[in-house]
């Protein structure tokens, strides 16, 4: 299972928002080359391996457009 998922269609763009990139300490994201259907530029995951699953991107995202897999669940405790 993936660690991260971005719902491209929910995103309102890194130019005006960009909170996910700002709150990620590990530089997991960068702006996408392409726009979504609404004309916004979502982030893309470039360094998934660096993700510490701190969930900042998910918790801060105003559009519920990022999800991070739960640490515990990954360890199989849940």
């Amino acid at each position: 299972m993936d660690t991260l998922r971005i719902y491209d269609e929910l995103c309102k763009g890194v130019e005006e928002c960009g909170i996910c990139i700002y709150v990620c300490k590990e530089e997991v994201f960068r702006p996408s080359e392409t726009l979504n259907q609404k004309g916004y530029r979502p982030p893309v995951i470039v360094n998934e391996d660096l993700c510490t699953q701190c969930e900042n991107c998910m918790i801060f995202c105003p559009d519920l457009a990022v999800v991070v897999s739960e640490k515990k669940r990954k360890k199989g405790s849940k």
């Binding site: 929910l10 763009g13 005006e16 928002c17 918790i59 801060f60 105003p62 559009d63 519920l64």
Partner: peptide, 17 residues
Amino acid sequence: THTTFCPGCGDGTVAQS
């Protein structure tokens, strides 16, 4: 299908909280 807020609006963060 999506939140009604402007890009970068904090209200969505409150919604999720």
